[in-house]
Design a protein around this nucleic acid. Structure first.
Length: 514
DNA sequence: CGCTGGCAAACA
DNA sequence: TGTTTG
DNA sequence: ACAGCG
């Protein structure tokens, strides 16, 4: 999820393999098939049981999986005072499917297994909890029973979250020109004009065919009662005039002028530096300086910042995104057994090159404090091994006194990516932006939705749910007036969540609105 | 014509 | 508080 | 020098 992309060259399409998008329990240890749970394993999640203070370690949970048909499942349940009936387990809700497991464990897990946290939490609650809550890897966007509730997309909607925005538009030049104009309005601090150009660009991007004439636009238009043409987000006066200029002359002169101006180039370069946004970039770009180097000499910016920016501007190939995520998860698993994770951001939207790497991690049965501690330990571990070279900002740890589910902690950092860590490029080290987010399992699908983007998709998503008096952030949905949190524990997938919010299912690869 | 336009949280 | 960030 | 809606 990247906000700022002044020279946003759209990347070429590539087959989107989502097999590694959601991964769970990928490296089972050899004990995992034995359903042997100690007393402490089954202590309620809250309070940390008898391993209080020691934080998270490997012995906290020895066994993650219990085969569904094993006698030990019922034995365990009975010993906990629980009686599992047939209706308690929906086969479709089963936790680990055999294809998710590494080969060496295929045999042992030939039949579906359940996550023992389900039993433990049920014991704590004194009743069998819905097992769907413990299923996180249970969705496949393209073939899901959850799809039965899908609403159809609406190409004419003014909201981007109702439309299809593929990675590559047949009108890429026009979209690019509109984005130049948007950039310019941002630079001039004309916020609402800039927003209008963003929306117009997104609208054009949702057109499935190349626009050659006004009639081509007509095909996408909504018709009012008089059957007069009107495309949402493209007003009758200003922006339409620009598009008509483009149709007539193949360019928008204002955009050309802006793009060729030296100050705009400097402005863009400044914007790509961490900590410099539109405001400072605008101020610095009109101090008379003509290059970044000059500004470094004056001491306005540091060479270090400029060099880092040059690294971060380079796109990250998909293979490198997944191998960097692999390094992070490999280390995560030494601190937290069997985490569930998803790689979000541009990677999930199918971009062949990402700006950064967004990794979302969740886990059943861990408290807020434990997950915060896990993230802090992970940061330290990655720093110690020299992989994580910089923290962009302090770990934002949610406060430990809230008993709500709306916790989320984020780590924004920079890693040194090299061949050692699976980079395609040899010897050379490249710095890459990485975001690691830990969240509560109840809000996992919501977090996936929020961290997948694009920015415009999120914006319109929130605008839409607001009309139904709901507020939505990355970790919870709540009523705007009563502030009551909406219970998301029954949400099985991102797709299910969108249906729940009365929104159409738009595949991640079609959320490339900006 | 007048109002809205996504949003929270961390820096400086 | 305004700016920057995801 | 934006656009939609009430």
């Amino acid at each position: 999820m990247k906000r700022r992309a002044p020279s946003d060259k759209s990347t070429t399409d590539e087959e989107c393999d989502d097999s590694d998008e959601i991964a769970q329990n990928q490296d089972q240890d050899d004990n995992s098939s034995q359903a042997t749970l100690s007393e402490s394993d089954l202590a309620p999640a809250e309070g940390g049981g008898d391993h209080s203070g020691s934080g998270i370690n490997n012995s906290t949970i020895k066994t993650a999986l219990i085969p569904l048909n094993s006698p030990s499942l019922n034995q365990l349940a009975t010993s906990l005072g629980l009686l599992i009936t047939h209706s308690d387990i929906d086969v479709n809700d089963v936790i680990v499917k055999s294809e998710c497991l590494p080969n060496k464990h295929k045999q042992q897990h030939a039949h579906p297994s359940v996550c023992h946290h389900w039993l433990r939490d049920s014991a704590a609650a004194g009743r069998i909890l819905p097992i769907a809550l413990y299923v996180l890897d249970d969705y496949n966007p393209n073939n899901s029973e959850d799809g039965s509730d899908d609403l159809p997309p609406n190409p004419q909607s003014k909201n981007a979250c109702f439309r299809i925005h593929p990675l590559n538009s047949p009108n890429e030049h026009l979209v690019h020109a509109l984005r130049i104009l948007k950039q310019d309005r941002v630079a001039r601090d004309e916020r609402w004009n800039a927003l209008a150009y963003s929306r117009a660009a997104a609208m054009v991007k949702s057109f499935p065919h190349r626009i050659r004439s006004k009639d081509d636009i007509r095909l996408q238009l909504s018709y009012d009662s008089n059957d007069t043409v009107h495309t949402k987000n493209i007003g009758e006066k200003k922006i339409r005039a620009k598009i008509e200029e483009y149709l007539n002359y193949g360019r928008i002169s204002e955009a050309e002028t802006i793009q060729n101006s030296a100050s705009h180039k400097l402005y863009n370069a400044l914007c790509s530096i961490q900590g410099i946004g539109p405001r400072r970039a605008y101020e610095l770009s009109r101090t008379g300086a003509s290059s970044l180097g000059e500004l470094v000499e004056r001491g306005s910016i540091t060479q270090e910042d400029v060099t880092l920016a040059q690294h971060l501007e380079l796109g990250i190939p998909r293979t490198e995104v997944s191998s960097i995520a692999g390094v992070v998860m490999e280390n995560a698993r030494t601190l937290l057994p069997h985490p569930t994770h998803a790689i979000c951001g541009g990677y999930r939207r199918g971009k062949s090159e990402s700006n950064d790497i967004d990794i979302l991690i969740t886990h059943h049965g861990y408290t807020l404090q434990q997950m915060n501690e896990f993230l802090a330990n992970l940061a330290r571990r990655l720093q110690d091994m020299g992989f994580l070279t910089k923290l962009m900002r302090q770990l934002s740890l949610s406060d430990g006194h809230s008993d709500k589910h709306d916790y989320q902690s984020t780590l924004l950092g920079v890693v040194a990516s090299s061949s050692k860590y699976g980079t395609t490029d040899s010897a050379q080290v490249t710095f890459r932006r990485v975001d690691i987010i830990v969240c509560h399992p109840h809000s996992f699908h919501l977090e996936v939705l929020a961290w997948t983007g694009s920015v415009m998709y999120e914006r319109d998503l929130r605008a839409f749910v607001k009309r139904r008096n709901l507020k939505l952030n990355a970790s919870c949905v709540y009523d705007e007036h009563t502030n009551n949190e909406v219970d998301l524990s029954g949400i099985r997938s991102e797709r299910h969540l969108l249906a729940f919010l009365h929104l159409p299912w738009i595949a991640p690869e079609n959320r490339n609105c900006d």
